[in-house]
Design a protein around this nucleic acid. Structure first.
Lengths: 150, 150
DNA sequence: TGCTCATAGGTCAAAGATGGTCAAAGTTAA
DNA sequence: TTAACTTTGACCATCTTTGACCTATGAGCA
């Protein structure tokens, strides 16, 4: 039951625990473990997904590397819950109430609140009939919440 | 993760932080780092581009040199200037370019960039004909920029 | 003053070095 | 047996390094 993938995952987890982030060179790691380089990608994709709060960045070319971090977030679940609770339409008043709520619970800072309000304000969505505007406001808000959840 | 290019970039950044501008002699620097002179140009082009606010001047011939500076524009002014420069319509690709520019010049942080992208992404504005979607994207972006300028 | 040349820096494309994707083949667990 | 998970490898995208060739500037000399 000790597959190569498990070994890779363990190595990454150890690095994460030690220093808070794991920076690896794909080819080197693959060589030292005797597997193909793309298996590293497989492990990262299957065991360190963004849904679990992992952030993966990489650089190609000479001196390239892969960096894995983890961001702690219970906020993420709150955002996702709100997205699911939202209907297909959203008026500006209700939007502002949601934003105030998120701000009050410290899930977003002042700037994020201001941006969310600006994107959904009537001035930004001017010229649309109420039903269309409300649908779009809901759509935009959800998209932005999704971004914040990651 | 320690390529020659990284070393060059680090040297230039240090000089910038110390004195506000970096003045280098291409051949000398290349020799001291054991690389070809044109690699200096590569690093300058790829890591100190004008989109990120860097100004590069040079003089050839005897006593020639390369000088790199960074211009600091006032945030508020930059946002207002961009709002004025924007037309009535904005496609998603151009939007992303603008956001990348703002981020590159440190006018917005990663979260603000993500929110701006989310609000203007095609998923958020789905179901609209291209001209209407582009108009709305421009409108929303301007409204958010206005918020950021305050 | 005009040449001429040595001394800088500039450009660009090819070669090299990494990492990314995806689908097929192999394994394992229910 | 089947569905999910692993392992591989061929091919792709991006970043870095190198080198041949080009252009601009300053200094010295006729």
């Amino acid at each position: 039951m000790s597959s190569v993938s498990n070994a890779i995952a363990r190595m990454i987890l150890e690095m994460l625990e030690e220093t808070g982030d794991a920076e690896i060179q794909r080819n080197l790691m693959a060589q030292s473990l005797g597997c193909v380089p793309s298996q590293i990608n497989y492990v990262i994709a299957s065991r360190f997904p963004p849904e679990q709060g992992y952030i993966v960045e990489s650089r190609r070319g000479g001196g390239g590397c892969i960096r894995i971090r983890r961001v702690k977030t219970d906020r993420g679940t709150a955002f996702l819950a709100l997205i699911n609770a939202l209907g297909p339409r959203l008026d500006e008043f209700t939007l502002r109430a949601h934003i105030a709520n998120l701000f009050g619970q410290d899930f977003i800072d002042e700037q994020a609140a201001a941006l969310l309000r600006a994107a959904g304000c009537s001035a930004a969505l001017r010229g649309l009939s109420p039903p269309v505007g409300d649908a779009l406001r809901a759509s935009i808000f959800k998209q932005m919440l999704l971004t914040l959840s990651r």
